[in-house]
Design a protein around this nucleic acid. Structure first.
Lengths: 235, 235
DNA sequence: GAAAGGTATCAAGAAAGTATCAAGACGGCT
DNA sequence: AGCCGTCTTGATACTTTCTTGATACCTTTC
């Protein structure tokens, strides 16, 4: 699997299976692979959990006590595009065909090997990368695309230096909140520069001249006198 | 198979398998299901056919006489997003994991049932509806045909060295994004060269002289000082 | 409203990063 | 072996970014 870029969330996986032993096993394995795991023990709970959690991927046992597995797939597919990987003891081909035609993405027969399961999970997740719209911060005329490391002002691309971008990145990821001088200084220059607010001010000033329409009357990058700086978040 | 909307082309499927009997069987089955089928009997021919035919889906036997199946997957994935379903007699989990991690979408062990194969084909095709991007990148006067490995500038073909092409390929597949020096270095020279940006700079410079109209004032291959490089994506 | 502390801006030198040329090393090929 | 194209390496010129100090401005407090 490719390196996870900083700032990306770990994928959420929902496991729907009635056997407690399997739930525990999967939870352990998946969590140690860096996923966030949610568990449900039957179909109705699974559907509810999927709606609540919005998982990035669903592992679904076909043999559930309350609902038919294929029915669960169909109901999920009414609104969720998340990949569904079916786990089942049934070897019968009809079952596989029905599950896949209902909208499942993959089918694994128990007992399955953990490495294969992980590989199929990686594959399914890899396939949906890029279809999900990437988070872009917008406020005023400002647009910050963290994934592409591109900043636009009034649809015009703006060139930022590494430190300027780093300051903006931190402000964006905490948009609306006040960040103290010390917080910014320690995250960008390290704790040795905590008592040198000057270097921060110069950079904030430069940054304003690049992203504010009237740098002397900031509307986005606001000063909180005596405290720090704050990026205005759109309502 | 679901109803084909009028005016839509039937999906093209490329079958790469060295056993004539299986090729014949699949051709019959797939054609009677409404697909257009193309056949290739080894890895090199398969790669060539894929570039020529641009199939919507590829059925690939892993045990080919000339090239390793995983290698074929990797080479396909350099430019093609088409789903790849692996057909193989190998049961070993390692093989499955390797194929899936190389970019295969699915893995079927021979002998497989035809209905299941068709179900998996339907599933894979359903998933890519509307997202098949043209594998030809265009921006400014630059044209990069990833499938044919051909680069043109102002409709004039340009000869790139292997490393130059590899750099360009990575930039194209992440067009618009900033790629850090370290990302580029590790993907082209491996993680041992992470601290040698010089070799990258020389290659970027050479590449610019081949694809930029004014290499000293780059308009496509942009420098992000202190960070890395980025290929301008057309709006 | 004046003083004190905090903030903004400018400009210049230092440091870091980047571009380019060219010479030699390497590897595949006939 | 000798040729070819390609890759690596070193030297050097160039550009961008960072830091720093001087100075003017603003905000808070009394």
């Amino acid at each position: 699997m490719d390196e996870l870029k900083p700032g990306e969330h770990p994928p959420r996986i929902l496991v729907v299976d009635d056997e407690a032993a399997i739930r525990r096993l999967l939870a352990t394995v998946l969590e140690s692979s860096g996923f966030v795991v949610h568990l449900a023990e039957n179909g109705s709970l699974g559907l509810a959990a999927a709606a609540a959690v919005r998982p990035d991927l669903i592992l679904l046992d076909l043999g559930l006590p309350d609902l038919d597995g294929v029915e669960v797939i169909r109901r999920l597919r009414e609104w969720s595009p998340a990949p569904i990987i079916v786990l089942s003891v049934r070897e019968r081909e009809d079952d596989k065909v029905a599950a896949l035609d209902a909208g499942a993405d993959d089918y694994l027969t128990k007992p399955f090997g953990v490495p294969e399961l992980l590989a199929r999970i990686r594959g399914s997740l890899r396939r949906i990368v890029g279809q999900a719209p990437e988070p872009v911060f917008r406020s005023g005329g400002l647009e910050v695309d963290l994934a592409r490391r591109v900043v636009r002002v009034a649809d015009q691309e703006v060139q930022l230096t590494p430190t300027e971008y780093e300051i903006l990145r931190i402000l964006v990821t905490h948009a609306g909140k006040v960040l103290t001088h010390r917080q910014l200084l320690s995250r960008i220059w390290g704790s040795s520069h905590l008592e040198q607010p000057h270097v921060l001010r110069v950079n904030i000033s430069n940054l304003r001249h690049k992203i504010e329409s009237d740098p002397s009357r900031p509307s986005l990058l606001l000063t909180e006198s005596g405290v720090g700086y704050r990026l205005r978040a759109e309502p």
